[in-house]
Design a protein around this nucleic acid. Structure first.
Lengths: 353, 353
DNA sequence: TAACAATTAGTTATCGATAACAATACTGAG
DNA sequence: CTCAGTATTGTTATCGATAACTAATTGTTA
């Protein structure tokens, strides 16, 4: 190992391994033709010297840019920043640069931002966060410029690019099932933004879980929501004003769930004694709230690291996409916190102003 | 202008300007000796070709890295991500790369993370967000490696490095003054994390504004807080349980202010009719809340862009630091929203469970 | 005005990697 | 065993910029 401060170069590795620099370079490339013997020699030299290629030199010499764009529209700051931090770290390790950009507005604007970014940096890859992951025009454009695309939780054209997600359906199913096991029968659901595919899956998971236990769902128990706090306030107020309010509210994300808690408290009920509340995403608000919010945790760091890894495993070219490369479904965790409890034996209190 | 897709190089500029590439290079450097005539020729050629230097080539050829580290400890995700987005954009424009890293834990850990980053990337500059901006050991280390440092809202060794902030004192003063003008006399304050310098300034602004109007502050009206939602819940509950609760609560950040709103609602009072609430920072929660929160907006994008600009204006070397380069105090904005109203004529309701 | 500094501009080598081509080492068929 | 054909490895030029040196120009002073 060279004395710290000085980084070792490909020349050092080549000398130590007793091969040419090209052989080292080839050992690093995913699809190069190189003998096993050389590869081993090079690999051990790399380890010994703790060598890592100089990105700038690479970028200059090759036609690749090693830039990966992370494009998002308007998911919550928390969602984005959680995703970023894992992706950044992984990028650094693998010699990529992450370029984060917000694509706002209508389709035209979004496309313009993407084009601009591309003109400026010549992206090698792009990661699309919801709801951009389902923007067909954007995907078309990126693929037409032969930019590798990885989508997070897409709902459309599932097999067109590799994607990463959790099983939203199953998560919602299990949460609902759990509430039922705690004795809840009157479970309401606050839907998410219909533009985001996962909303549909979460709703369906809830519905199917209810039906699987032979529970019927009153129409009014499924409320419209849009992933915003405000929409959660309205939806939860609607639910509490029903003649028979629910004993549990399952919201499609944490912002709406925390709005539900606020409403419940404001109307003189308490969480979880009177009404249990569950959210989705495990965003920071879930633990800043009091009572803390039970929710579904997505493994954001794993997801973002996985996304970057996909780029490094050779070019993601459409023909070579095997199913196991395309589908990357990671495990969720149900975070049980203070906001849920067994159903109250009887709920006959009246709300008081 | 070259046909889009192809970027023009320094050679193109040199040819068009009728000079050598070195002259172009020098025209771009901050302290190079070059005649006005050549500089003008080069500049117009650069404009015509829309030339922007290739960062990789630069990094390879020079001893600079063009990496700027953005180090933060644990300010809210919202604070960091707002800062990042401006900084990223500016970096792209000026040919830097922003490397974002979280430095957690005790001083030793923080230092280790910074050293690691430095070994890996050889930073040209570092931006320190609070509370890292006041970590003397960290600043010492970075300066000792001759990394340019820009600090955000520092409280210690103010003149050691350039810094960027708003006038927290004045903002707090004006907010308090505004509440007083609305007829509030019983104004309480929830303090921020004492590790963060701005906390002290915000408190002092509040105190001085009260005194300037000859209002006295009951001891119990100044509550301990730590910038967290939970600490805001406790502090506000304390305030509402006083025999004469305040008619206005000013919290040193939005998280605590929103906790205050939650407590007020839970105890059967309403905002702003019974009690006005003001926060600080204009974080996303301020507008997701209902009622929306009046607060002080820091110009985060301006701050982050300014920070990056400082690096590009030649090396920030300690000797050349004039006062006007060091101090960068930007303007805040008081965001008046739904959570404040004139003081109630009389507050004689009792809280009801 | 000649002689010498000080400024400004140009030339060449270099950073660390890969592309494209050239050379060599293996392989199996005849 | 030889030779074509393939698999592997090496050589040289190159990416786009700057450092370090050299050359030319300008300005100053005796």
């Amino acid at each position: 190992m060279k004395n710290s401060g000085e980084r070792s170069t490909i020349q050092d590795v080549a000398k130590l391994a007793g091969v040419s620099t090209m052989t080292v370079s080839r050992a690093l490339a995913p699809n190069a033709s190189i003998s096993i013997k050389s590869r081993l020699k090079v690999e051990s030299a790399i380890n010994e010297l703790n060598y890592r290629p100089n990105v700038s030199a690479r970028r200059l010499a090759s036609d690749k840019s090693f830039f990966i764009g992370l494009l998002y529209d308007n998911p919550s700051a928390a969602y984005v920043s959680q995703f970023i931090s894992g992706a950044m770290r992984k990028c650094r390790r693998l010699g990529f640069h992450l370029v984060v950009d917000e694509c706002n507005g209508d389709d035209e604007n979004i496309l313009a931002t993407a084009k601009n970014l591309q003109d400026e940096l010549a992206l090698d890859g792009a990661i699309l966060l919801p709801p951009l992951c389902d923007n067909v025009k954007l995907v078309d454009y990126l693929l037409s410029r032969s930019i590798s695309v990885v989508r997070i939780a897409p709902d459309i054209d599932i097999n067109r690019t590799p994607y990463i997600c959790i099983n939203d359906y199953e998560a919602a199913f299990k949460v609902t099932e759990h509430l039922i096991k705690l004795g809840h029968h009157k479970i309401a659901f606050i839907k998410g933004d219909p533009k985001i595919g996962a909303s549909r899956l979460r709703l369906q998971g809830y519905i199917d879980a209810m039906h699987s236990q032979n529970l019927t769902i009153a129409d009014e128990y499924i409320q419209y929501g849009a992933f915003t706090y405000k929409s959660g306030l309205i939806a939860s107020a609607n639910l509490l004003n029903l003649s028979t309010p629910p004993t549990a509210i399952f919201a499609a994300n944490d912002d709406m769930a925390s709005a539900a808690i606020a409403t419940i408290n404001r109307l003189g009920f308490s969480v979880p004694e009177d009404i249990s509340v569950v959210g989705f995403d495990d965003s920071p608000i879930a633990t800043t709230m009091w009572p803390s919010l039970s929710t579904v945790q997505q493994p954001m760091t794993d997801m973002s690291e996985k996304a970057i890894e996909l780029f490094s495993q050779g070019k993601i070219n459409p023909e070579a996409l095997t199913t196991d490369r395309i589908r990357n479904v990671l495990n969720f965790t149900i975070m049980q916190r203070e906001s849920i409890a067994p159903a109250p034996a009887l709920l006959d209190q009246k709300k008081q102003p």
